[in-house]
Amino acid sequence: DTLHVTQDGKHIELRGLSEEEIKLVEELLRRGRKVEEALKIIEELRK
């Protein structure tokens, strides 16, 4: 699936995420994380 995010005035499209990963990214962003940080966390969880 694809998640569309706008952060720091930039539109970012995150592709290839599972539904659970999207929920996790959304939660991390709500808690003030940056998109880059959220993606690093997803990458770690995929290992």
Rank of each mutant, 00 (worst) to 15 (best):
17 L>I: 04
23 K>S: 11
8 D>N: 07
42 I>Y: 01
1 D>R: 02
35 V>D: 01
29 L>A: 02
30 R>K: 13
22 I>Q: 11
7 Q>W: 00
38 A>G: 04
25 V>A: 10
43 E>F: 05
27 E>T: 10
5 V>W: 00
8 D>M: 01
14 L>I: 15
32 G>N: 08
13 E>D: 13
8 D>Q: 03
7 Q>Y: 00
13 E>Y: 04
34 K>V: 07
10 K>R: 07
30 R>S: 13
34 K>S: 09
3 L>H: 12
46 R>W: 03
22 I>F: 07
10 K>V: 15
3 L>P: 09
27 E>Q: 09
23 K>T: 13
23 K>H: 13
26 E>Q: 13
6 T>Y: 04
1 D>E: 07
47 K>L: 13
17 L>T: 01
36 E>D: 13
27 E>M: 08
7 Q>R: 01
32 G>L: 04
1 D>Y: 00
23 K>M: 13
2 T>Q: 10
15 R>E: 15
41 I>K: 10
12 I>N: 05
11 H>E: 15
42 I>R: 00
7 Q>H: 05
1 D>P: 15
12 I>Y: 09
19 E>P: 13
42 I>S: 01
35 V>A: 09
20 E>R: 10
40 K>E: 11
7 Q>S: 08
11 H>Q: 07
33 R>M: 14
29 L>C: 04
21 E>Q: 05
37 E>D: 10
17 L>R: 00
2 T>A: 06
46 R>F: 03
27 E>W: 05
9 G>L: 02
42 I>A: 03
6 T>G: 06
16 G>D: 14
21 E>I: 03
4 H>Q: 09
22 I>P: 00
1 D>G: 15
11 H>T: 15
35 V>C: 02
28 L>I: 13
4 H>F: 01
35 V>K: 01
3 L>E: 05
31 R>L: 12
20 E>T: 13
35 V>E: 04
35 V>H: 02
13 E>N: 04
22 I>V: 11
28 L>A: 10
40 K>M: 14
3 L>I: 15
18 S>T: 14
23 K>I: 13
30 R>A: 13
6 T>F: 07
43 E>R: 04
27 E>Y: 05
28 L>W: 09
39 L>C: 04
36 E>H: 11
3 L>R: 06
35 V>M: 03
27 E>R: 05
27 E>I: 08
16 G>S: 04
44 E>G: 08
4 H>D: 06
42 I>G: 00
2 T>D: 09
1 D>Q: 03
38 A>T: 14
47 K>Y: 07
39 L>V: 14
16 G>H: 13
17 L>D: 00
26 E>R: 10
33 R>G: 15
8 D>E: 06
26 E>V: 15
44 E>T: 09
13 E>K: 03
14 L>C: 09
41 I>L: 12
15 R>Y: 15
6 T>W: 11
29 L>P: 00
20 E>G: 11
9 G>Y: 00
27 E>F: 06
22 I>H: 05
21 E>H: 04
2 T>Y: 13
7 Q>P: 05
35 V>N: 01
9 G>P: 03
15 R>W: 14
16 G>M: 01
15 R>H: 15
33 R>N: 14
32 G>K: 04
9 G>N: 03
9 G>A: 03
39 L>Y: 04
17 L>W: 02
12 I>C: 10
40 K>C: 12
32 G>R: 02
33 R>P: 03
17 L>K: 00
18 S>R: 05
29 L>M: 08
2 T>N: 09
23 K>C: 09
21 E>F: 03
24 L>D: 04
29 L>F: 04
35 V>L: 07
14 L>M: 06
28 L>N: 07
12 I>D: 07
6 T>A: 06
23 K>L: 14
11 H>I: 15
45 L>W: 08
2 T>H: 14
14 L>W: 00
40 K>T: 14
46 R>H: 11
36 E>M: 12
28 L>K: 02
39 L>H: 04
25 V>E: 00
15 R>K: 15
43 E>I: 04
1 D>C: 04
14 L>K: 07
